[in-house]
Each structure stands twice: as structure tokens, then as C-alpha cells.
Write a protein that binds this DNA or RNA. Structure first.
Length: 429
RNA sequence: GGAGAGGUGGCCGAGUGGUCGAAGGCGCAGCACUGGAAAUGCUGUAUAGGGGUAACUCUAUCGAGGGUUCGAAUCCCUCCCUCUCCGCCA
């Protein structure tokens, strides 16, 4: 959520910055709404002050011996009643305005960081770096895509998943299930060694939590909802992790707080019919290990680099080639001020594919979720950052495509052996 | 799900409908004392919003929302949460 003070004092800045995202917006209505709400509030609190004064006066009159039903007391009582009615009327109007204002503000995305490159769409994202050698098919060799390998090795059962749930769900079997579990444990251990506190949060979250991290109110159609309970299936661990410290004030010397969490993630993927229909790339339910930082505002830029490095460390430990892309202003997510996407090389598909998205949200989520830090006198909003470290299903896809052998088996990186128990997936196994 | 108890500042804990943003204690900060510290003493110590260059000031907040009243932490209603016991359950 954007700062109301900024709206009042520098609306042009908001308009210019949102324009960098490709949003042209007339802030006039919003400003007017804010102004009206403020005027009403001023009027109301003035009346309340008057009412408080009368109340005290009655108190001291009675204490001084005036009769409860005496003329002075009765006059003040009438006056108090009139004020009460006026206050009630103003309050109702103010509430309506505040609700509208809040609704509109909650629907506005974050302002892009000054550092985010200009651009209108995905096409203008900027490649920052590449790591590793993308595997290309040798002469006469054709590389399979991960879903072909997975089916051939009986790691997944797609058809039966429809029976259990729906399309876009997957059931992992045998080595597939074990590899998924190994990857989760491997990543959590890696991040734990790098200083993250492991968290296993609830994956049903309430409306306030989704609003705090920015999924609501705008993207309700993207989440699964438990209608009778004000609970939703979390679309990413970013949601419960943001709310881990919702409505808290954290001493600055405790920062940064760094968490990693494995959760299943649930997304309705509305409007993606026909895209990535095979395999592990786009599912209604998938597993992910998430990294999350609560940082002092001054430190969040460096934190963003570090968080991204921590995600890259997973890919490097698994020897998976990747590149780092910085999203241009037009491609930034709703809550992000600046984002690096990590794209892993899918050898069978012959493309780089997003496997992690590392964002700094500035104070955007902190304002929505009311998370502050305290340093000396006074409090201020802190900064939040999040990134995948990594999406498990896509990691498995990359491993299968990268490690496939001419004999039909798949070689796994050495780092996984302690977790999976073998260095190879074979047809017979 | 049933029965009971309870939710007050960073923490503990008092609070008779009238000057209560709230006693007292702990903690924390500053000052004094000390060679330095401990102990002690004094002073200060919530958050959000509005107004003011500032000193300061106004409003709101005692789980949340309603109500009664000139006036509510205190009385009434609804809801939420926590704890104890019973039931059920991985």
C-alpha cells in the first residue's frame, strides 16, 4: 500500500512512478477523497473535544454539589446530546469515505524502485548474468523434456491425479516422491547453514494475511478459498511469513530477520488454460521453499542482492545452469519494487525457465501488514523481501532434463546423494 | 462440540461510571553518587492520526464491534482469542 502522506504531499511522484509500470491513473479522485476524509476527521475531532469538555464540566458541577437534575446540568446534558448526534453523523460519513479510500489504495501496486530498469513488458527485462554451461543436444542426440522422462521412469502419474483431484495436479510416485522430499530437505538444510531460521507455517491463511502481503483484494480469483471459514489456501509462503510479524514493532538491532519455509503452494492459475499443460511446470498445487527477510530500510538493497545470491546458491550447488534477469518496470509484480528472476536452463525444452523470483517490496507490505522497526525514538516501517529458494517441481524438471543419459537414466548432482541415497534414476528402479 | 476462567502499556499487575493514557512494580534510557562498577536516589519512558517552525496541542486506542450515559478500562449485547476440565481426534 502506498503512503497516504505521499499522496497528499507529492501526488505527481506517485503518478510518474506508476506510469513507469505502464499505469496511467488520475489521482484527482483519490486525492479528493483523502482530503474530504481528512477535513471530516478534523471537524469530528473538534466536536469530540467539545463533548469531552462538557462531560468534564458536568462531572465537576456534580462534585461541587449541583443537583443531578439541576438547570445547569440539564443544559449541558442537552448540549452533549446534540454534539453526540453530530459526531455520529460525521463518523458515519467519514467511515464511508475511509472505506472507499482504503479500497482504492489497497488496489494500487507498489512504486518501482529507482533502480528498476524502464520497460513495458517482459521483452524489455534485462539479463544480468549467466552461470554454468547450458546443455545442448550432441550430434544426433535428442533431449527429452522432463515430463517425458518423468513418465518413462514412472516418477509421476498425471492421469490418476485427475481422478483424485483435477487437471493441473500431479501425483509423485516412488523415486519421484522421494526426490521431491530430498530436494525440500536439501534446500532447507542449505539455507539453514546460511543463517536462515526454518519455519513451517500454516498453509491456510486468513484474509488479513493475504491483504498484508498484497494478494488481496486485487487477486482474489487467483487463490483457493475455504468459503465457510475466512481461510484461504496459501499461494506462496510469502503470505504466512509476512504475517509472522504482522502488527509488530521489532527492535532494529534484531534485524535482519531471515526465514526460510517449505510449503505447498496453491494457485488457481486462472486464465492460463492451455499453457504448460504437461509436466511439473504449472500446477494448482506445487511445493516451494521460500526465503524471506525483514530488513532495516537502509539495508534492503544489499539484502536483495544477498537474498538473490542465497537462491542462486541452490542452483549452483545442484550444478544447474541459470541466468539472472532483472525485471523491467512494466513486468514487476504487484508488491515488488524491484525483482530479479532466476531462470534455470531446461535442456530438453531448450529454454531458460523461471525458477525463482527475488523481490524487494520496500515498505509496501510492511505498511499493509503494519510491521515496524524501532531504533531510538519513534518507529518506522521496515522493509520486506522475498524469493523462492527454490520452486521444487521446476527444480526437479531441470534436474531430469539436465541429467538425462543416453541409456535412459538420469544422473543426479553429488550434493543430492546424501538426501536421495543414489546418484542416478534408472528405468528399472 | 460441552462446562468454567480470563484478555489492561515492552513485561507483571491495580483500577469505586467523572481530570484515567491509566496506580505500583519490573525492564529500559538519562543524570547523581563511584577510581570503575554493583547497590541506591532522582528524572524520563505507549502507539496512530490531525494542527503548529517549535514548545506544544487536539482526537482515538485498556481483545474487536455495537449499545446505555452529559461522561465507560469500569455497565449491557455480540463476536474473536487464550487458559483449565470433559468429549472427539492424527
Amino acid at each position: 500500500m502506498l503512503d497516504q502522506r505521499l499522496l497528499r504531499e507529492n501526488p505527481d511522484l506517485i503518478a510518474t512512478q506508476l506510469a513507469r509500470r505502464g499505469i496511467s491513473l488520475d489521482l484527482g479522485e483519490l486525492q479528493q477523497l483523502a482530503q474530504q476524509a481528512r477535513d471530516l476527521g478534523e471537524q469530528r475531532s473538534g466536536l469530540q473535544a467539545e463533548g469531552n469538555r462538557i462531560g468534564k464540566e458536568v462531572g465537576s458541577l456534580i462534585k461541587g454539589g449541583a443537583a443531578q437534575g439541576g438547570p445547569e446540568v440539564a443544559a449541558l446534558r442537552d448540549q452533549g446530546n446534540r454534539i453526540k448526534q453530530q459526531v455520529a453523523a460525521l463518523e458515519e460519513e467519514e467511515k464511508g469515505l475511509e472505506a472507499r479510500l482504503q479500497e482504492q489504495l489497497l488496489g494500487l501496486p507498489n512504486l518501482p524502485s529507482a533502480l528498476a530498469p524502464e520497460g513495458r513488458s517482459e521483452a524489455e527485462n534485462v539479463e544480468v548474468k549467466r552461470w554454468g554451461e547450458p546443455r545442448l543436444p550432441g550430434p544426433g542426440e535428442s533431449l527429452e523434456e522432463h515430463w517425458q522422462i518423468a513418465e518413462r521412469l514412472a516418477l509421476v502419474d498425471t492421469e490418476r491425479s485427475v481422478r483424485i483431484a483435477q487437471s493441473r495436479f500431479v501425483t509423485l510416485l516412488g523415486d519421484g516422491a522421494r526426490l521431491e522430499r530430498a530436494l525440500i530437505a536439501f534446500m532447507l538444510d542449505l539455507h539453514g547453514r546460511r543463517g536462515y531460521t526454518e519455519v513451517l507455517p500454516p498453509i491456510l491463511v486468513n484474509t488479513a494475511s493475504l491483504t498484508g502481503s498484497g494478494q488481496l483484494p486485487k487477486f482474489a480469483e487467483e487463490s483457493f478459498r475455504c468459503d465457510s471459514d475466512d481461510l484461504w489456501l496459501t499461494p506462496t509462503a510469502e503470505v504466512p511469513l509476512t504475517s509472522l510479524h504482522r502488527d509488530e514493532v521489532i527492535a532494529a538491532d534484531q534485524l535482519p530477520l531471515r526465514y526460510c519455509a517449505y510449503t505447498p503452494c496453491f494457485r488457481r492459475e486462472a486464465g492460463s488454460y492451455g499453457r504448460d499443460t504437461r509436466g511439473l511446470i504449472r500446477l494448482h498445487q506445487f511445493n516451494k521453499v521460500e526465503l524471506y527477510w525483514f530488513s532495516r530500510p537502509e539495508d534492503s538493497e544489499a539484502a536483495h542482492e544477498q537474498l538473490t545470491r542465497d537462491a542462486e546458491a541452490v542452483l549452483e550447488a545442484l550444478a544447474l545452469p541459470y541466468r539472472r534477469i532483472e525485471l523491467c518496470t512494466g513486468d514487476l509484480g504487484f508488491s515488488a519494487a524491484r525483482t530479479y528472476d532466476l531462470e534455470v536452463w531446461l535442456a530438453g525444452a531448450g529454454t531458460y525457465r523461471e525458477i525463482s523470483s527475488c523481490s524487494t517490496c520496500g515498505d509496501f507490505q510492511a505498511r499493509r501488514a503494519s510491521i515496524r522497526c524501532k531504533e531510538g525514538k519513534g518507529t518506522r516501517l521496515l522493509h520486506t523481501l522475498n524469493g523462492s529458494g527454490l520452486a521444487i517441481g521446476r527444480t526437479m524438471a531441470a534436474l531430469l532434463e539436465h541429467g538425462q543419459q543416453g541409456d535412459g537414466s538420469v544422473r543426479l548432482p553429488a550434493a543430492l546423494v546424501p538426501y536421495f541415497g543414489r546418484d542416478r534414476l534408472t528405468p528399472e528402479a
